[in-house]
Amino acid sequence: MRLRGLLVGTVTAALALSMTACGDKGNDAGTNPPVNTEAKFDEGTTMATLQKAGKVTIGTKFDQPLFGLKGLDGKPAGFDVEIGKLIAAKLGISADKIEWVETPSKIREEVIEQGKVDFVVATYTINAKRKERISFAGPYYEAGQDLMVKKDSDIAGPEALKAANAKVCSVTGSTPAEKIKEYVDPANVVLFDVYSKCADALRTGQVQAVTTDNVILLGLIDASKGEFKLVGKPFTKEPYGIGIKKGDTKFCEFIHKTLTDSPAEYEKAWKDTAGKVSPETPKLPTLATCS
């Protein structure tokens, strides 16, 4: 008898699961950009190879709210993910043919060099050092480093940190972690492997501020339910690029064309994701020349 009860339970659970799965599929179809089935590319280019293969592997973050966050359905969602889907669509590849690979900050160059992904869209700041190993297309968005503090905090900008003897949290190996050392004593910089731990440290009073790109902070503020606020004075410029194999100029040019040709899709991508916290759609930054 007990066995039978168990069986019924399992079947019910399985049914419920399969029903939710169906629901998700319905939602996704609505948000995906239209697939360009008639795209034509020169033989031998990255675009032609990918189109022929009919699938693409894209690296993104799985832990970045609003940009690339893997949900319970196992699929990442966010602005970066939408940009990835847009590029894939222009290659003639539909969203369900994309394989998403998690690319945390420290392995992004490696996976591109080793060809484990075709390109990376992962809140990836363009800088000279990274350009030595890979090439960037874009920027498709310009972020800036900012501070996140508790709602009742009176820290008004990075200059106020030193006077307050405030501890600042960021992520090991990230650009903001290096930059903030210009404003505070390195001993007061607390580093974790992920930003969610920083948010926890801010909540429990272990640190007085969290610093990184404003868009990442927006995601944390969104999740904090009004406990934290953004200081709102970006003190750096972080152009986000799409990481591709070094020297793949044709692919870079294709991505640029995709970005400039699709203002409507760009706006929709923002509105559906980061726009929920920061409603104003950003202007596409001036694209760098492909080299």
Binding site: I107, E109, R130, S174, A177
Partner: peptide, 12 residues
Amino acid sequence: SDTLTGSRGEAA
């Protein structure tokens, strides 16, 4: 190692 491979972009 995180600092070097991350923000400074050195090979791992």
